[in-house]
Design a binder for these strands. Structure first.
Lengths: 258, 258
DNA sequence: CTTGACCTTGACGCAGCGTCAGGGCCGCAC
DNA sequence: GTGCGGCCCTGACGCTGCGTCAAGGTCAAG
């Protein structure tokens, strides 16, 4: 008769594994010797090896008994099913590999390729890391709510980058962040924005934007996000209000105020 | 501000997932509103989406924070490492598929190809299912203790199958099982075995067997297994003892006794 | 005032064991 | 006799990433 350690060694598993199989009823508890030790016979060795063989082939323990007792037909069916499952798991892992491969290059972390391309352009144009990160987060938010509109919006943004005034504006922003907020730059930035927006409005872009970003609460959320990012946003909104514009994420004409 | 349900919906995860991330400290617990509800801002949406993006790419949650805070170099290193792990898991699963594929055809359940071939031959020679199963279990036991000797032993066994007396013996066994034990068949089987073993001994095979199966306790275990399998084994051992042989798994010459 | 849809915490479940913790039993050397 | 190393015992938590009740507050609408 064998002790659990000998049994486990013959079958090439650990003692813990044997006890686990007892616990889940896969292998029957054997009798005990005088001192309470489990005492196995050869039958147990055979059973355990057959169990281990299936388990090592990826058969879930819950199905092992079923397979051991199956006739050839049932066995084949069950095996085919398990192979299906294994294939699905492999596909899943391969999908994971594809995704981390995409993550490995660039900012495509959580944003689509269009946004990643835009962010790369921004960086190439000299925007600071902080600025790019802020833009990235903004577009993550945008993608979360209106994923289908991202390609179009990004095309617009890329086109805007061709305008030297846009670049000047971003440079002003970076300077406001890095050198502190001074009135002169704030006014300059507000003037620039007002000018660009006027043209944008003339082309009807702002109306389109209003139609597309049709979720006031979410726009408010994004506005708050921008405001939280840096105090200059709030100041610029005030200055823009004086120039007849309200909003940030979704800009609209407003009554010119104090 | 958002409730947990809205946050989860924007990020494409379940509320349970968000709470889980709070629990493990991956996403900070937000403030609560008057009635104790969690109240999220846009920052949380961004954070959650970035976490989810990594998690869906197969990054273990325990490493997500590390990756989110990593600079590009660290990020690349970590990603490479995770990809390694994914590849290893895929290899593992593919190994599983190979194994169940092998299981799918034939008795290679827990025995090597040589034994499987032998069992197929046995079946083809007309042995009953019960007999084949018994042989299979016996060889499982043998493989567990002396895996490296299996090819040689199986070659011998296959050769023995060429001897018509061996087939006659197996047929006698099957009849003893199916029709009940009668003295006539038992004597015939014992005579046949004694005859064959005499020749085997003359060729020196029994000495070799004795050297190879050099583990008395294990041999005793296998003997007990055979004895448990069917009462005829015990009777046959008695008859063989009268003819000067002892043992079953490992046969040896003994003092001929009553 | 009642629904139904949301939110709260707490806790078990899953898969397959690994790994202590705390404690007997056994045989051998001193 | 006793100490020591090596076996065995049960019980229980840990890991991974949530799913899924359970039992109970909250809120807006009818």
């Amino acid at each position: 008769m064998l002790t659990i350690g000998q049994l486990a060694a013959y079958a090439g598993v650990t003692q813990r594994t044997v006890r686990h199989y007892h616990q889940i009823g896969l292998l029957p508890e054997p009798g005990r010797d005088a001192s309470g030790y489990r005492s196995y016979d050869a039958r147990a060795v055979v059973d355990l090896i057959r169990i281990r063989t299936l388990a090592e082939a990826g058969v879930p323990l819950a199905r092992v008994r079923e397979l051991l007792d199956a006739d050839p037909d049932e066995f084949a069916t069950a095996v085919a099913e398990i192979d299906q499952r294994l294939r699905a798991e492999i596909r899943q892992l391969q999908e994971h590999r594809r995704r981390i491969a995409r993550l490995a290059d660039g900012d495509s972390l959580a944003v689509g390729p269009e946004v990643a391309a835009y962010l790369d352009r921004l960086r190439a144009a000299g925007a600071s890391d902080a600025m790019v990160e802020g833009e990235r987060d903004g577009w993550i938010l945008m993608s979360a709510r209106w994923p289908e509109r991202i390609p179009e919006l990004m095309a617009d943004k890329l086109a805007q980058l061709e305008d030297p005034r846009t670049l000047r504006l971003y440079r002003l922003f970076d300077e406001l962040v890095e050198l502190g907020m001074d009135e002169e730059r704030l006014e300059a930035a507000a003037d620039l924005m007002a000018e660009v927006m006027e043209e944008s409005a003339a082309r009807g872009e702002l109306d389109r934007q209003h139609d597309e970003l049709d979720d006031d609460a979410y726009v408010a959320l994004m506005d708050a996000f921008a405001t939280d990012a840096h105090p200059m946003v709030e100041r610029l909104q005030e200055l823009l209000a004086e120039r007849g514009w309200s909003g940030w994420i979704r800009v609209e004409r407003a009554a010119p105020g104090s």
